[in-house]
Simulated scan of single mutants.
Amino acid sequence: MIRHLVLFKLNDGVERDDPRVKEGVEAFRALEGKIEEIRFWELGWNLSDRPIAYDFAINSGFEDADALRRYVEHPAHQAGVGLWKEFATWVIADYAY
């Protein structure tokens, strides 16, 4: 299994209630059940107020590297990425477990 972690940082001046952010969250929330490669899917807003904390996270699981690649290339995933590019940056980590 491959764990795929993504941590998002909203750009300066962008707040959670921004309509673009709400649309981006819903786009990623809708991926579960839409992309068959997803084996585990959770996402949510960070609760920490520490300065080094990111704002939003996705924690997901895939059978193998090929399944993760198909997910990353899936049009629905790419559409969500396109939305998030407008208002955030992110880091990822993919590891076997």
Score class of each variant (00 low, 15 high):
Ile38His: 03
Val25His: 12
Lys34Met: 02
Arg20Cys: 02
Leu43Tyr: 09
Arg39Asp: 14
Arg20Leu: 11
Met1Ala: 13
Ala53Gly: 09
Leu5Val: 13
Ala67Leu: 01
Phe56His: 02
Asp64Gln: 10
Leu5Gly: 09
Asp17Ile: 06
Leu7Arg: 09
Val14Glu: 00
Arg69Asn: 06
Ile38Ala: 04
His77Leu: 06
Glu37Val: 06
Asn11Pro: 10
Gly13Trp: 05
Leu7Phe: 06
Phe62Pro: 00
Val21Asn: 01
Lys85Val: 02
Val91Lys: 13
Leu5Arg: 07
Ala53Met: 12
Asp94Tyr: 07
Arg39Val: 12
Glu26Asp: 08
Tyr71Asn: 09
Pro51Asp: 13
Arg69Met: 08
His4Ser: 07
Gly61Tyr: 03
Asp18Phe: 03
Lys34Leu: 07
Asp17His: 08
Asp66Cys: 07
Trp84Phe: 08
Phe87Gly: 00
Thr89Tyr: 12
Leu31Gly: 00
Leu68Ala: 02
Leu43Cys: 11
Pro75Gln: 01
Arg69Glu: 08
Glu36Lys: 15
Gly44Gln: 10
Asn46Thr: 08
Val72Asp: 07
Ile38Lys: 01
Arg50Ser: 04
Lys85Ser: 07
Arg50Ala: 11
Ile58Leu: 13
Gly13Val: 03
Glu63Trp: 08
Ala53Glu: 13
Ala88Trp: 10
Arg50Tyr: 07
Ile92Ala: 14
Asn59Trp: 11
Asp49Glu: 13
Ala67Arg: 03
Val25Gly: 12
Asp64His: 05
Glu36Gly: 15
Val6Trp: 01
Gln78Met: 10
Asp66Trp: 10
Gly33Gln: 07
Val14Tyr: 02
Ser60Pro: 00
Arg39Ser: 12
Ala76Asp: 11
Gly33Asp: 05
Lys9His: 15
Val91Pro: 05
Val14Arg: 02
Asn11His: 15
Tyr54Met: 12
Lys85Pro: 02
Arg3Lys: 15
Asp17Leu: 00
Asp49Asn: 14
Tyr71Pro: 02
Lys34Cys: 00
Val91Leu: 13
Ile52Cys: 14
Gly61Thr: 06
Met1Val: 14
Ala27Gly: 08
Gly33Phe: 05
Lys85Tyr: 01
Ser60Ile: 03
Asp55Trp: 05
Gly61Ala: 09
Tyr71Ser: 02
Tyr95Val: 04
Phe87Lys: 00
Arg3Asp: 11
Gly24Glu: 08
Arg16Met: 04
Gly33Met: 00
Leu7Thr: 09
Glu73Tyr: 04
Ala79Thr: 11
Asn59Thr: 13
Glu32Ile: 14
Glu32Gln: 15
Glu23Leu: 02
Arg20Trp: 02
Lys85Phe: 04
Ala30Arg: 08
Glu26Ser: 06
Leu7Val: 05
Glu26Lys: 09
Pro19Leu: 00
Pro19Thr: 03
Glu15Phe: 15
Gly44Pro: 08
Ser48Tyr: 07
Glu42Cys: 10
